[in-house]
Design a protein around this nucleic acid. Sequence first.
DNA 1: CAGTGGTCTAGACCACTGG
DNA 2: CAGTGGTCTAGACCACTGG
Lengths: 245, 245
Amino acid sequence: MSRIHREDEDIPYYKVLKDKIIEDIESGKLNHGDKLPSERELAEQFGISRMTARHTLSILEREGLVERRVGAGTFITNKRIELDTITFNSFSKNMLGRGYIPSTKKLSIQRIPAKAVLAKKLRISEGEELIAIKRLRLVNDTPVAIEESCIPYKYCVGIEDLIQEDASLYQLLEEKFGIVLVRAQEYMQVTFCDESESKLLRIKTESPCILLEAVAFDKEEREIEFSRSITRSDIVRYYSELRLR
Amino acid sequence: MSRIHREDEDIPYYKVLKDKIIEDIESGKLNHGDKLPSERELAEQFGISRMTARHTLSILEREGLVERRVGAGTFITNKRIELDTITFNSFSKNMLGRGYIPSTKKLSIQRIPAKAVLAKKLRISEGEELIAIKRLRLVNDTPVAIEESCIPYKYCVGIEDLIQEDASLYQLLEEKFGIVLVRAQEYMQVTFCDESESKLLRIKTESPCILLEAVAFDKEEREIEFSRSITRSDIVRYYSELRLR
DNA sequence: CAGTGGTCTAGACCACTGG
DNA sequence: CAGTGGTCTAGACCACTGG
């Protein structure tokens, strides 16, 4: 009945177990379809009660990482189908013209080297310098979304001194750097926020959120911006008016 | 310590309590900002243990109906901000041209009188006849979305005998009834599926899903169709390619 | 400082799945 | 029929909130 070792005594047992399972999924030790030990086994192995093990599995289930089947067990699920349906988001736009008061809070502006994944998306070399701009969007002082934009620094040298609270990034790119974004490729999905996101958005950790990832191109078909936004789904509803033909 | 009365012995206590609270919200007995009894009070009032009361509140919290604050209590939250951002869904379209095999299963076709809310959306009289078509969309035999379309029957008399499995509803409207849909107003939000939806989609009850509600108009600006779709968010990702100007 | 939700325990009985 | 997750109990200690 020996307890699992907790590096940090403040981390609750259910979280330790959760992190362990997620790590095993990310490292490839656990794969789609694999069976987890039963709740009773997990409880015994980790020296916790079955209810605590269940708590962990409930969270993982809500996040879509595991699937439980009565009488059979708990299984890893890790699959995604990609749908070719059109959606749209440009949070900075005129999205709030109906009695809401939008505002923006700068969270951070940093010059960082591009990691491999990001470099590929922006078609630049790994390690090339990027400007990363992280902002919090609010409506009537309620936080609604976290937006992060990454732009190769070569396209906008000095931008970090020009960005104002509540200013449009696209407008700035156009007026100061002559860069006009004309096209974007966008992915939208539901995700669950992590702890730091939940604090900024003032929602509970693991709440479902809208994740939007986009690459924007200028008229020379250059990849200019990679953006990633996390939007609260509990108080947000999207509206659109569209032509069917 | 008297148990709450269970009409149906098969309904678990946490569900009975959940339904009771939802009913109080829907009837207006509980409003945004109201404080619920504490977990210990709920447990005592309903003759259940505190852990069971907590289970109920966890579900309501995940659905965004209540908010818990340590030391303060549990409060009703029932607010939505509407965002003016464009999105799009036309599930029946060419959305799956990339190696996926889409299919459609008819669930039900019924002629029903329009309820007040629906009548208003379609600008017809309450009680006017509608055709309600409910279909399940699958990709590679995995259920992905439930779609329900409601059309005033006067626009498509006899349609119930024409609908084929896997046929496009819009195409049918155009070819057989001369109705061309040209414009739609659409709302998109994240929601949580109920029990019957979860069974059809083969996911757990209360999983987050994309809810899309739309009204489609023809070229004479007549409201032709109200549609409502519930899409799994665990395996679906939306893609869009868009022009920014 | 009384009350709150967060975490946790060590049990119990149930219906169900799968070999 | 052994094992599984689902439901449920009656306790416990904790940090935190708010009057």
